Amino acid sequence: MSKYLMNKFLYTIDRDPDLVERYREDPSGTVAWWEETQANRILNCVGQESSTWLRFEDTEREALRAHDYVKLFELGAHPFLTLTLFIGMFERDYHEPLGFQLEYARKLSHIKLPYPDIST
């Protein structure tokens, strides 16, 4: 399992409004594109700097494709990264104030301390 790669995906998608919309509308295509073209790029480096070995595990890939932030949290994705990205994607679908945040908290309420390890 690569918590680093999951968190890198969440971080880089969340930083680009066009990618947020792309991920909302086509999660499977976005995950496949990102894994193929972006996963091995080194953050904050020129395009020529890259590695070759980073790939999602099947469980990570499926959770990302399904927008399953509960499973991502259980796999060790950082909660701030999942929350900020999914707020950007889904807050507009709720009519009450903090609607998505309350839904996020409700869906994660079964998880008790200690939380899953989020270190990378």
Rank of each mutant, 00 (worst) to 15 (best):
residue 51 S to D: 10
residue 15 R to Q: 13
residue 14 D to Y: 04
residue 109 S to Q: 10
residue 3 K to L: 03
residue 88 G to L: 12
residue 3 K to N: 13
residue 71 K to A: 15
residue 80 F to A: 15
residue 115 Y to D: 09
residue 2 S to Q: 12
residue 3 K to S: 05
residue 30 T to I: 01
residue 1 M to V: 08
residue 42 I to T: 13
residue 34 W to K: 05
residue 66 A to R: 14
residue 62 E to A: 14
residue 21 E to T: 10
residue 76 G to Q: 09
residue 104 Y to C: 03
residue 50 S to H: 14
residue 75 L to H: 06
residue 119 S to K: 12
residue 28 S to F: 04
residue 72 L to F: 06
residue 85 L to W: 08
residue 105 A to K: 12
residue 38 Q to F: 03
residue 6 M to Q: 08
residue 47 G to R: 13
residue 116 P to F: 05
residue 64 L to T: 07
residue 108 L to N: 12
residue 71 K to T: 15
residue 100 F to S: 02
residue 24 R to P: 00
residue 54 L to P: 00
residue 29 G to F: 00
residue 109 S to W: 05
residue 45 C to H: 11
residue 93 D to N: 15
residue 70 V to N: 06
residue 100 F to P: 01
residue 113 L to Q: 13
residue 88 G to M: 11
residue 30 T to C: 07
residue 116 P to C: 12
residue 32 A to M: 01
residue 83 L to F: 13
residue 58 D to N: 13
residue 14 D to W: 04
residue 57 E to P: 01
residue 26 D to S: 10
residue 13 I to E: 04
residue 89 M to S: 06
residue 115 Y to L: 15
residue 42 I to S: 02
residue 9 F to E: 00
residue 1 M to H: 11
residue 37 T to Q: 11
residue 95 H to Q: 14
residue 61 R to H: 11
residue 78 H to L: 10
residue 84 T to S: 15
residue 4 Y to M: 06
residue 45 C to W: 10
residue 110 H to W: 06
residue 70 V to Y: 13
residue 48 Q to W: 13
residue 72 L to Y: 04
residue 116 P to Y: 08
residue 44 N to L: 11
residue 87 I to F: 07
residue 95 H to P: 01
residue 80 F to Y: 14
residue 105 A to Y: 06
residue 29 G to I: 00
residue 35 E to F: 00
residue 10 L to S: 05
residue 42 I to V: 15
residue 1 M to S: 10
residue 72 L to N: 06
residue 39 A to I: 04
residue 28 S to H: 04
residue 80 F to V: 14
residue 30 T to D: 00
residue 30 T to V: 00
residue 96 E to M: 10
residue 72 L to D: 05
residue 20 V to A: 00
residue 91 E to I: 07
residue 99 G to N: 03
residue 54 L to V: 00
residue 111 I to T: 13
residue 9 F to P: 03
residue 14 D to K: 10
residue 115 Y to R: 12
residue 79 P to V: 08
residue 106 R to G: 02
residue 40 N to M: 03
residue 10 L to G: 05
residue 13 I to Y: 03
residue 62 E to D: 13
residue 120 T to A: 08
residue 20 V to L: 02
residue 119 S to G: 09
residue 27 P to D: 00
residue 8 K to C: 01
residue 74 E to W: 03
residue 33 W to A: 10
residue 37 T to D: 08
residue 15 R to L: 14
residue 46 V to M: 10
residue 4 Y to G: 11
residue 63 A to T: 08
residue 36 E to I: 01
residue 118 I to R: 11
residue 53 W to A: 14
residue 8 K to R: 14
residue 12 T to Q: 15
residue 6 M to S: 12
residue 110 H to P: 00
residue 47 G to Q: 12
residue 117 D to F: 02
residue 57 E to K: 14
residue 18 D to I: 05
residue 7 N to R: 06
residue 113 L to K: 13
residue 33 W to T: 04
residue 41 R to Q: 11
residue 84 T to C: 09
residue 81 L to T: 02
residue 64 L to F: 09
residue 48 Q to V: 12
